[in-house]
Design a protein around this nucleic acid. Structure first.
Lengths: 212, 212
DNA sequence: AGCGGGCATTGCGAAATATCAATTTGATCT
DNA sequence: AGATCAAATTGATATTTCGCAATGCCCGCT
């Protein structure tokens, strides 16, 4: 498990509570905003979204987490979870009691740098999200998102529901749908069924970088 | 200095390099994105903005930092600065060599929790920025920004140039200007000169939470 | 007080996006 | 295959935001 990569044999003896492996299906919830944070999770496979709500009912997906990422890192610093964590694509997770990490963090220095760099990555991603997915025309933003979701090796890409994509980008479901449909008509995306596409990354890159 | 609040007397003997106090005027730069990160800064007074650029030339202010905040935290984890840091309102800063913090972090545990919580705050702010300032109509977003910049005690508020406000919100300068001018006409803001306003926080709150 | 220069504001037409209401498509179940 | 249901797409129209140019205003300078 990546979070514990630097730990050594003796460190693990400090773990007195069980670390469970759990499976969650798409749509299931890991935790809700405001709940007392008991666990953090590392993702072995699948995708988890973190959502925040506004008083006016508006919602925004603020991050996507995937293999190797940690869900609920904030429990180490804050008493409650700060987002809604929902599974977007069937996931295998390790559920780690918060005090296990706290204890390890206190008693061994080997976790410190891991934790710092996890936080760093979270900030980096948040900043990227802001500059890439919340700046520019919705067409550019959709293009950037698709690129970000693409597997660069085989030029392939799994998308999510138009509603979720919209909540990631801060635009409506319909706008997202129209743009993706347009990409399909233009050949920038080729539908392979089940929200699985072949992506013309070069063309998408062009669209991402033009400001109109 | 808040970052070192938990340190004790002996810890400071680990500091072998000088910590400078520096003043910067509005418009001056602390560092550029991609530069090797030598220093981090704590803010004693004033405001600093962190900006990121897109390949297409788009720009976005991703964070505002003020008294007590740390600028350039990422140098502890990454070799280069990840933003452009520019002074937005005349500032007094403490310039701390990066290896001072690294050394302290290695040799005393008293800095660890400070650093973790600093990162945590950075992520929280980034998420707020996204949900509050990048979601909803531009009118709501301007309202939320003004509220965020207000002093809740005296219902007063210093704004920045319309251009900067626009870069914070991801809208054009003109749109920002129009909305603020409208707030002034409606009495939600009352001009006191020099971008200093009296703010009707209740009314702004209402505008912030209506989705149209 | 008068002069400049940089912002801020405003007007107007164009473009982008939202909104609401159909259709169409696609996957699943029987 | 047919039925069914949810999601995606499309159409038509309303609103919002942009983009550009013109104008106005504030502030510091002399």
């Amino acid at each position: 498990m990546a979070l514990f990569a630097d730990l050594e044999h003796e460190d693990f003896e400090l773990i007195h509570k069980p670390i469970l492996e759990i499976s969650k299906f798409s749509g299931e919830t890991l935790y809700n905003q405001g709940e007392e944070g008991q666990y953090l999770y590392t993702i072995r496979s699948g995708v988890v979204k973190l959502t925040q709500y506004l008083p006016d009912g508006g919602q925004r997906i603020v991050r996507l987490l995937r293999q190797g990422d940690i869900v609920g890192l904030e429990t180490l610093v804050s008493p409650v979870y700060e987002h809604f964590a929902t599974v977007l694509r069937d996931a295998e997770l390790c559920q780690i009691p918060r005090d296990v990490v706290e204890r390890l963090n206190k008693e061994t220095p080997r976790l410190h740098s891991q934790l710092l760099s996890r936080w760093h990555v979270a900030v980096q991603r948040a900043d990227e999200w802001l500059t890439e997915l919340s700046t520019g025309s919705s067409k550019s933003r959709v293009a950037r998102l698709v690129i970000g979701l693409s597997d660069k090796n085989d030029q392939t890409c799994h998308l999510f529901s138009r509603e979720d994509l919209g909540a990631i980008l801060g635009v409506t479901t319909e706008t997202t749908s129209r743009i993706i449909a347009e990409f399909k008509r233009d050949g920038a995306l080729k539908d392979k069924g089940k929200n699985h596409f072949w992506a013309d990354l070069e063309r998408l890159e062009t669209i991402a970088n033009q400001n109109n």
